[in-house]
């Protein structure tokens, strides 16, 4: 059974993420109010298969057009309010990703994009990958998807900016309610495979 919760326990398989200053949450809420109608996004590619980059690109094209919400993709972390991390952090890309994090002015919102960004996706336990953005930087919003559709990207930005509230909630199923029903009970026996 593949039920191993944490894969390899030894410390050397983990990286230690950047630690947040204490009052940063208060600063972030203040920031959110300011950038509600004009958010500058900077894309940090930590070694994904670049399907996520193309979908972010597609989100800015005429059909989905993020600029109508004031969301603009800028070309330097200096101007950025939101850092958009894609890709499961590969070893070679860890140093540049941390440099980008320090270059952006505080307070900043960090969004982790795509299955690789959220939790390492299909490469989560590989030798050359640290697996997920939250291994190196504190993340505020997760946008799952492989790759997330441009509509999901826009929804993610809306949740990040606090325009929409998130729909997905963690769920605890109660399976003991009743027995599992058999399927196709009314089919006569001999033709049922």
């Amino acid at each position: 059974m593949k039920g191993i919760k944490q894969l390899v326990g030894t410390a050397h398989t983990q990286t230690v993420p950047v630690v947040l200053p204490p009052n940063s949450q208060k600063l972030k809420d203040a920031l959110l109010k300011e950038i509600r109608r004009s958010a500058y996004v900077y894309r940090v590619d930590c070694g994904g298969c670049n399907a996520c980059e193309i979908e972010i690109f597609a989100a800015t094209t005429p059909i989905f057009d993020t600029e109508r919400f004031g969301i603009k993709i800028v070309a330097s972390p200096r101007h950025a309010d939101i850092l958009l991390y894609t890709g499961s952090v590969t070893r070679a890309m860890r140093a540049p990703a941390l440099r980008a994090y320090e270059a952006a002015p505080d307070p900043k919102i960090v969004i982790s994009y795509g299955a690789c960004g959220c939790d390492g996706g299909i490469f989560h336990d590989l030798y050359c990958v640290w697996g997920g953005t939250d291994k190196i930087v504190p993340v505020d919003v997760y946008i799952p998807g492989c790759p997330p559709t441009p509509a999901a990207t826009i929804y993610g930005f809306a949740v990040a900016l606090g325009l929409l509230d998130q729909k997905l909630k963690s769920k605890q199923h109660q399976p003991e309610a009743q027995k599992a029903q058999l399927k196709h009970t009314n089919i006569p026996l001999d033709i049922k495979v």
Binding site: Y142, P144, A151, Y155, G156, Q172
Partner: peptide
Amino acid sequence: PTHAIKLTQNFELAVTNKADLYEHAVFS
């Protein structure tokens, strides 16, 4: 085998805290 798990059409999955991305079920 019993079609218990199905893919919905829900793509609006952005969350602010990571715990919301996990679903659990305990069977005896």
